[in-house]
Design a protein around this nucleic acid. Sequence first.
DNA 1: AGCACGCCGACT
DNA 2: GTCGGCGTGCTC
Length: 633
Amino acid sequence: MSYIRIALNLPLDQLFTYQVSPEFKGEIEIGQRVLVPFRNRKKVGVVIEITKGKLPQKNIREIIQVIDEIPVFSQTLLKLAYWIKDYYFCSLGQILYTFYPFPYPLKLVNGGSKSLLSFYSEKRKSEKTKDKEDHSIFFLKKSDAKSSIGFCLDRIKDCQEQGKQVAWIVPEVNQIFSLEEILKKEYSGEMVTFYSRLSGRQRYDRWSKMRWGEVGLAVGTRSLVFTPFPFLGLLILEDEENPAYKQKEVPRYNAREIVTKRGEVEDFPVILTSQSPSLESWFKIDQGQWRGLLGGKKSKTPRISLIDLRQEKRQMLSELLKRKISSCLQKNQVPLLFLKHRGYAKFLLCRDCGEVIRCPNCNIGLTFHLKNLLRCHYCNYQINVPQYCPACGGRWLSPMGTGTQRLEREVHRQFPGTVIQRIDSDKEIFPISRWVEKLRRKEINILIGTRLVIKEEILSWISLTGVVLMDSLLNLPDFRATERAFQLLIRICRGMNKESELIIQTFNPTHYVLRGLGEKQEQFYLQETQIRRELNYPPFIHWERILWEGKDREKVNQVGEEMERRLREIKTEFLGPSPCPFPKLRGKYRSQLMLKIKDPLRENKILRQRIGSLLSSLSNLRVTIDVDPLNML
DNA sequence: AGCACGCCGACT
DNA sequence: GTCGGCGTGCTC
């Protein structure tokens, strides 16, 4: 008698056992999909273990059908799946479902072609004799958005000669097409693009081509990282710091981590690129774990002027910025005014010294609440609004963080008769080509935008950017606020056309983010690393956020207390528990806890035991865990 | 996650 | 009377 253990797409940390009737014997392989009866329905599962011998329990049901003739998932891909499961706290079945995201009737046939089959088995033979390859991680620091293309093309051509496949991953769908256009001219092999917006049929056809080794080059978004390429020789991940690489739903993976892990597991090189590396990546290069390379010519630097808002009259546009806008308009150029999105998290700023009131534990800006209260979103520290600035004793403390529409009105007033275009919501930004077309036809005089407008295609039309209130970027209640502000400024600097100018209005002109612009970028990273080290923040630890919500406020609070107790027992460091920034959402009370984890793989195991049992005993609470969250709000 | 079971309120 | 709301429990 033989039976199999399979993974199902359920949020359950367990495998299910089924019996294999004699008719399927010898057909079953690990990594194959099978159709099984589950409750009163049919479900697709992936074979994880095959065991011969006595059945481990009674009432084991039989599989209905073997779906694939050849396993969809190789042993190495399964190894990757196991790693993701342990790292990101989800079930094996959920991951395998994201590896193979097609509904059941799509059956993986071998294209009806024998040649493909033998192709595949030949590959398997050669795999055993293959030499050890260099699976280093290369990090390409780009001087501008496009400077990775030349470098990567050479590597892609090398792969083409060796009959290996390459996957090039970009953060956003619209970046695929411009890259595709360039690569079409340079790459002579078969190429596909891959992204979720394609129809099911299209996605499946392209996926099959990749899977059967019929294409040499694939360009796509983050899910491309899971494609079971049989001959993968290189993975490229463009703009590694982009938060779009983090999936917001289960499994909450970051494609950057998967790419490097897959390179390690399958033993091929990986290239990450960026104009403005994440601190985590910069640190790995600095530590010598990854190999840093420089791409492109020396970067251009615009003229940068800092406006000290403490010296200015209380208005949104300084005299200098207004003058520059005027001269821009005279030259028929389009100035860009940048600001943060409609401020939802207000902070309290001292107009004398330019500092913001910060949490003494967490160093992030305290959030200004109604009723005279300042609160830390990380550790729940609270104080009443002080009368004097704790840093300089100044009395003029004012709440900041609003005013998108106000700026538009202000610009209208200052520059009557001009066409002002505001771009600040996702709906409007796509397609970007619409705005580019308007810029080309000179239908816009002044552009006002949030970070959505900081795209290469738009910036190349701009020669003057005014950052209206730098402080709203620097003082967001997120420990990555300074890093993100720095990256944004770098991208603006690199993206604007030549002989451009950047004007930054701020209450804090000596901030290290601003000193790090231009030639001294390493300075910024060194200083930021120092701060992260002192506060024990990433890259020195990993955050894991546990969030739970329920209708019963008391119960939500009790769970917090119980979790606190258990975490103390296993000596895990954590912040909170504290109510979420939106403490009541859709009628449910929400609390969260932030764990500081040194070694996720090791510590998650312990957490699964200690916290997992608590969580499963609480039926009417919904719990989510996010490893390496990018958004701490 | 689904899906069934079961226990309560408001309907032709 | 019963239709249907959703809290609870289980899945080889």
